[in-house]
């Protein structure tokens, strides 16, 4: 396995094998993060492709100030947040066109169409996560889905360690409220 520095150097030289190595080494990491944001395989795969495309095109801008994984996490988080904003706008537009099309927060969770219990549970969790503020959600995903230590989350989010602690703490309090509300009403 190539060292990250060598890998970056090879990528900057346009080495095709290095690109394949980058995908093989960091693909699962990028996919897990994207899945945390989208809770949807198709969107997560699409975003993973976009992340590697972006990484390839901007490889010459990578100066090695951070690790390759931190750099890729940053691209993934930024792209995911932007895509979610676009999706939200699209949903609002289509929702406004459907008369009486207002959806409840848990609209799909109690649907009998749920394929399995686990899918339904995941949907409940993600519906609650979707109500979190952007930064809380990002910190929570990086912590729970990727298992990143707070220090690395701080690097990815370009913030302090105490901010990350606070964001994750508040994310859990908010999630807790939403889940309790869902199961007690």
């Amino acid at each position: 396995m190539q060292a990250p520095g060598e890998l970056i150097h090879a990528l900057q030289q346009g080495d095709e094998k290095a690109y394949a190595t980058l995908v093989k080494t960091y693909g699962q990491m990028v996919y897990s993060t994207a899945f945390g944001f989208f809770n949807n395989r198709t969107d997560a795969e699409d975003l993973t492709q976009e992340v590697f495309l972006e990484a390839f095109h901007s490889i010459n801008k990578f100066r090695g100030d951070s690790s390759v994984s931190t750099w890729l996490y940053r691209i993934t988080v930024n792209k995911s947040i932007n895509q979610l904003k676009k999706n939200k706008k699209r949903e609002q537009l289509s929702g406004s066109l459907i008369p009486g099309g207002e959806r409840t927060m848990w609209g799909h969770a109690k649907s009998p169409d749920a394929i399995s219990e686990n899918l339904e549970r995941r949907h409940i969790l993600h519906t609650a996560m979707d109500t979190l503020p952007e930064l809380q959600k990002t910190a929570f995903i990086l912590h729970k889905y990727d298992g990143l230590p707070y220090k690395e989350i701080a690097q990815v989010m370009n913030t302090s360690l105490s901010s990350v602690e606070s964001l994750i703490h508040r994310a859990k309090i908010n999630l807790q409220k939403k889940l309790i509300h869902y199961y007690t009403t």
């Binding site: 690109y19 394949a20 190595t21 995908v23 093989k24 693909g27 699962q28 996919y31 897990s32 899945f35 945390g36 395989r41 997560a44 795969e45 993973t48 492709q49 590697f52 686990n118 549970r121 995941r122 409940i124 969790l125 929570f140 729970k144 889905y145 298992g147 999630l175 889940l179 309790i180 199961y183």
Partner: peptide, 23 residues
């Protein structure tokens, strides 16, 4: 709530051969 919250740590995988196709 426990099984719902535990979904956050569950490993997720893409469709078969996705990384091979991408790489």
């Amino acid at each position: 709530i426990k099984p719902v919250y535990e979904q956050a740590g569950e490993p997720v995988s893409p469709s078969d051969g996705f990384f091979e196709r991408l790489s």
